[in-house]
Design a binder for these strands. Structure first.
Ligand SMILES: [Mn+2]
Ligand SMILES: [Mn+2]
Ligand SMILES: [Mn+2]
Ligand SMILES: [Mn+2]
Lengths: 231, 231
DNA sequence: TTTGATAATTAGGCTAGCCTAATACCCTGT
DNA sequence: ACAGGGTATTAGGCTAGCCTAATTATCAAA
């Protein structure tokens, strides 16, 4: 038996936490997260990513295959899921308990997630009744680090003629979220895909109340749907 | 096209914010904050303070008189008061709305104060009904940057025979705060100073319910009281 | 198979914040 | 007036994270 005590690891920095989240999101469909994708997501230069990847693989949070990309180790995945839980609980709490608009909570959570204690997050989760989805429909990992995985398709590529449930909406653009709320395009709504214009044109959908919406491709790519096979 | 508009001032870092708070607290009775006092309060080495004081005076947040100490400029004072408001609103919110113990909120607020937005603080203040004192009895600065100043005396030096109202309690030591709560020594309580033992001995006080408490000097120095002249 | 575009890495530099060790300053007691 | 002790500053160094410019690896097209 190794006497190696579970390292009294130094707390992760804000940067490290955000890198881990990025890698998690970029590898959620499997495969590797590339340097340039991470750089784009975090708005840093690619060499900054190379440098950070070196450090993170030295500390065992990621596996780095040079010139290929990176994946999270189990330890890195745990840390990433913890951050995602924090982020989504915060978004939920700000929305439900402090009257924040669903368009404004992401940027706030992006900072707070690095400053809250485990205890505070669990108090918030408790006050909310252990929510399973955040205000944008994204699943909230459990405190134990489990997260629901779902096969979703964007509205921009959903089969014409089929029906879908709008499940999750990209949370990063306040103005788009305001617009979507106005249009009644919020998680949970059922939509029938009526038509799609060619050349990356808009998708036309009908809500259950009979009204229709014309959704451009840019927006459609941010609406994640679950197809409902029947009618 | 247009003249490049530079953001007037980059956001303050966590370190800078904590230094400004320290200077505020150390100069609240007037005079200068010394390098070694700041160093002790922030648990950094004195040269770190010298370096930071240089930068802060270059950015106009403090006035530095070499070998004497520092004071806040109006701009530095505004920033410090804003941080103190954040800190105290956070402590109040965590206590009132999320069931935190008054001994545990300080350390949590010490981190969160650097991550919350102005908007979030005002939402919390609103939810609390614009509280004027934090859980430890410290006055909360207004959003406009005004703070109540009071002449308080520690229980360890209050006149024997007089009466005092316990107004404010040092907030940094969880165990001491737990003990004080047990003893019913919380802000607002009225105490008659019965006796004080010599050689920095304890102060004996009587509460309005007739029970007495023996308060050692170490604890007594952390209890800030307002003398009530009458009986 | 060579080549060129693209992506990734390395090289070198910068700032914020911290440190220790060395030095300078200030004040008080003689 | 001056010496010592204590405090403050300067000198020099380190890490985390970021940057740009230069270099190298990969891969697909010619
Ligand atoms: Mn978000
Ligand atoms: Mn973040
Ligand atoms: Mn506090
Ligand atoms: Mn702080």
């Amino acid at each position: 038996m190794s006497a190696a005590i579970r390292s009294p690891q130094p707390p992760l920095t804000r940067s490290v936490e955000d890198y881990l989240k990025s890698v998690f999101h970029l590898t959620s469909q499997g495969g590797f997260a590339t340097t340039s994708d991470i750089a784009a997501m975090l708005e840093v230069a690619p060499p900054s990513v190379s440098g950070m990847m070196k450090r993170l693989s030295e500390t065992g949070l990621i596996e780095h295959v040079p010139y290929r990309g990176v994946q999270l180790t189990p330890q890195g995945r745990r840390a990433a899921l913890q951050m995602i839980r924090r982020h989504r609980i915060l978004e939920s709490y700000l929305t439900s308990k402090l009257g924040f608009d669903w368009g404004d909570v992401h940027v706030e959570a992006e900072r707070l997630e690095h400053a809250v204690s485990e205890k505070l997050i669990e108090r918030m989760a408790d006050a909310l009744g252990e929510p399973r989805y955040d205000p944008h429909g994204a699943p909230i990992p459990t405190a134990a680090g489990e997260i629901e995985e779902a096969e979703l398709v964007t509205l921009a590529e959903a089969d014409v003629g089929g029906s879908v449930i709008l499940q999750e909406v990209d949370d990063e653009h306040p103005e788009r979220l305001h617009y979507l709320a106005e249009q009644g395009l919020t998680p949970g709504v059922r939509l029938r895909v009526i038509e799609r214009q060619p050349f990356n044109g808009p998708t036309i959908v009908r809500r259950d109340d009979g009204t229709t919406r014309v959704v451009g491709q840019e927006l459609g790519l941010l609406l994640f749907c679950r197809p409902t096979d029947g009618e």
